[in-house]
Design a protein around this nucleic acid. Structure first.
Lengths: 218, 218
DNA sequence: CCAAAAGTGTTGCAGCTACACCCATGT
DNA sequence: ACATGGGTGTAGCTGCAACACTTTTGG
């Protein structure tokens, strides 16, 4: 049986970064590959998405097949699709993040071959494909979940502003996104304290009111 | 020319949720579809990923082709792949988020046909495919960027814990993820104040030390 | 009685909120 | 002169960080 299309299609897989804590350390579940490419290397559990299943369903199915773990909450981590990430053909993978409590470690009981093993994050083998990137994305996501500083992610919000902007424009952008009015003085203190703005020593002109100082984000 | 595979492959597209602020309101850039399915309906700009290009590159290319916008920072929003989201064949889309400042609106100048238009988020037409879902994911992401409350995303961290856990176990999980030691009293105050824990009125037993109270996350 | 982990309050400080008036420009 | 938006300080409060000892169990 074969499948033919008018245009080339990539293969699509789901890979799961599944973390647990063992002996007070973060561990990730890896599978030892039985086939080429990367035969013998360790890889994230995962596999091809089937044509009639949702992405998350596919990820859950692969996870169950390869590790015996079921009923695990999966959260999408993102798509990884560098053209050369798989030597066989173009493969785009949708990565998922999952966490399991230490008491759910029925692992080797459920999986027959048991080529699935927990690896300490501080002592990892070389991984197949670009799985190291994916794993790192999972680590970052996990770290961000418990960190409350806004700095990194809010930076893109400044993309709404032109290169040179006034504080009033910046305030307006934040107000629109947050959907609430902000106090002018407090906003100015906040933005000056939390973002590196450079005063361009320039003023707007043309409004029939006092000109405003222009800033740029450093 | 046609392309044949041993297993069925989905098509993969990139769609871009591109926001701007016009007249103090959030707007999103939509394209009016010229072809079936959903001919005439509005849709997010996007199109098929080519086999030799990275996901982000493909998104940027499609955005440029359809709207004339270039040099825009794209951030991955996630993959959307419900099996029935496209009536023609299985299509998985990788969505991207982009923001443009109001002064970059060279839009209609660059694009010939100009079937691209900014739409106010509070007055949207029906969208093609599942683009409404994707758009909403973009809105949420944008809102989260400027919100500093931890509540929603940190909830999954509790998946590291068994259903019944002690406060010491919870603290240990947070310490491992954050990579730093936390003060016991402050942690207890924080967790009680910010998470709905129910005291199970049960104690651990068996340790050669004082038994600990068990809690579960409500 | 000793070891091991559980449990418990207070104080100082930093950062946030609330709040009202004068300033510079164009018409 | 007036209309329009730009620019500025302070006081109270709240939430977070720092910090040490007593309690309960098992061996």
């Amino acid at each position: 049986m074969s499948y033919t299309y008018d245009y080339p299609h990539p293969a699509v897989t789901a890979d799961i970064v599944i973390f647990s804590i063992r002996d007070e350390e973060l561990h990730v579940l890896l599978i030892q590959r039985k086939l080429n490419p990367f035969k013998g290397a360790w890889a994230l559990p995962g596999g091809f998405i089937q044509m009639d299943e949702d992405l998350e369903t596919g990820a859950a199915r692969e996870l169950a097949e390869e590790t015996g773990l079921t009923g695990i909450h999966l959260e999408q981590l993102g798509a990884f699709g560098r053209p050369d990430r798989d030597p066989r053909e173009r493969v785009i993978t949708i990565a998922f993040l999952a966490l399991v409590p230490s008491d759910k470690l029925v692992l080797s009981a459920a999986t027959d071959a048991s080529d699935a093993q927990w690896h300490n994050l501080s002592d990892l083998p070389k991984l197949a494909f670009d799985h190291e990137n994916i794993l790192n994305a999972g680590r970052e996501r996990l770290a961000n979940m418990v960190s409350s500083d806004i700095a990194q992610s809010a930076r893109v919000v400044f993309k709404f502003l032109p290169g040179k902007f006034t504080l009033a424009q910046a305030q307006s952008v934040f107000e629109i996104i947050k959907g609430e009015a902000l106090d002018k003085r407090n906003f100015r203190k906040w933005i000056m304290a939390n973002w590196a703005l450079t005063d361009l020593e320039e003023k707007t002109q043309g409004g029939r009111h006092r000109p405003a100082a222009l800033y740029s984000l450093t």
